[in-house]
Nucleic acid binder design. Structure first.
Length: 297
DNA sequence: GTCCAGGCCAGAC
DNA sequence: GTCTGGCCTGGA
């Protein structure tokens, strides 16, 4: 693979010479929910875009993603194109053999840099839930109060809702329409807290990791794990280390044995992986889930 | 019917 | 601070 090259043509963006870009490893690792797989290609809704991500032998194609200006203004950051992933994998591989194996199994994984508010709402919905239901709920929520983007094959696509749109919802109706269940009041309350600046999202960028984590936990429905997901996927915090059921399994299998306390598991992640803990977590998470680690067949 | 899914919250200690 | 039980909902 040579040096990366990005060009645009007919509203499509082509990325060639990039060895770390595997759509399956990017989307199917729980960091994003607004995608749909068809025959190895992925339809993705992000911001005002509905694109199709294809991996061809010679290039990655982002169909309908716009011009070079769209790439520079949005996609470059979204796909974390300024990080040296081959270098990251080499660095993680040197930490230990487990991480070496995990990175080798998920080459092409990238940690997306998504919208902060969208991550807050999405991960509140994710708590004690499963991926297919999370995705359905988020689509229904966007349909309920997000701005329409376009229609493709008579299917309508909507932007993720604004803060005020969610703050103004009736919790009972929200629960009924989207299937978010008991999380509905959390979503509305969190929307209101952000709308009236009780929690200032602009501050999250400025605070150090611990303070930002603590600040996010003030939001309704946001606990330690959800706050770490928000920071990792919506605020570019490489050291955020979300401890979910899969991470508990993989950390115990490889490092700890039988630790149930999430706080101590997170501390172990930081001890071993340092300020790259979140990136290590993504490779380990993908690896753990692919291999159904710690579950009986 | 029971169990579980990328946890959070409230209450008890 | 740490631990426990309950929880909308839908699919296995």
């Amino acid at each position: 693979m040579g040096k990366r090259q990005v060009i645009s043509k007919n509203n499509n963006i082509y990325i060639s010479g990039e060895e770390d870009f595997e759509p399956k490893h990017i989307f199917e690792n729980g960091q994003a929910f607004r995608w749909e797989e068809n025959g190895g290609d992925y339809t993705l809704v992000a911001d005002k875009y509905v694109i199709r991500v294809k991996k061809l032998a010679e290039a990655i194609v982002l169909e309908n993603a716009g011009s070079m200006k769209d790439y520079e203004d949005f996609w470059r950051k979204y796909f974390d194109m300024d990080r040296d992933y081959p270098g990251l994998r080499r660095e993680l591989s040197q930490i230990d053999n487990k991480l070496k194996m995990a990175t080798e199994a998920a080459v092409g994984l990238r940690v997306l840099k998504q919208d902060l508010f969208e991550m807050i709402i999405s991960f509140i919905i994710s708590a004690n839930n499963n991926i297919s239901r999370i995705k359905k709920s988020i689509e229904k929520l966007s349909e309920l109060c997000g701005e329409k983007i376009c229609e493709i094959d008579s299917k309508a696509y909507y932007k993720f809702p604004s803060v005020s749109a969610i703050a103004d919802l009736n919790p009972d109706y929200l629960a009924e329409y989207t299937g978010v269940g008991y999380r509905a009041p959390y979503l509305v309350k969190t929307g209101k807290m952000i709308e009236n600046a009780e929690v200032d999202l602009g501050l999250i960028d400025k605070l150090d990791y611990e303070a930002a984590h603590k600040e996010l936990m003030r939001l309704a429905g946001v606990g330690p794990k959800v706050a770490d997901c928000i920071l990792l996927f919506g605020n570019s915090r490489d050291m955020a280390f979300p401890v979910d059921t899969w991470v508990i399994k993989v950390m115990n299998e490889y490092y700890l044995g039988n630790e149930k306390n999430s706080k101590r598991i997170k501390a172990e992640g930081h001890r071993r992986f340092g300020d790259k803990a979140g990136l290590a977590q993504q490779y380990l998470f993908y690896h753990a889930r692919e291999n159904k680690l710690g579950t009986k067949k």
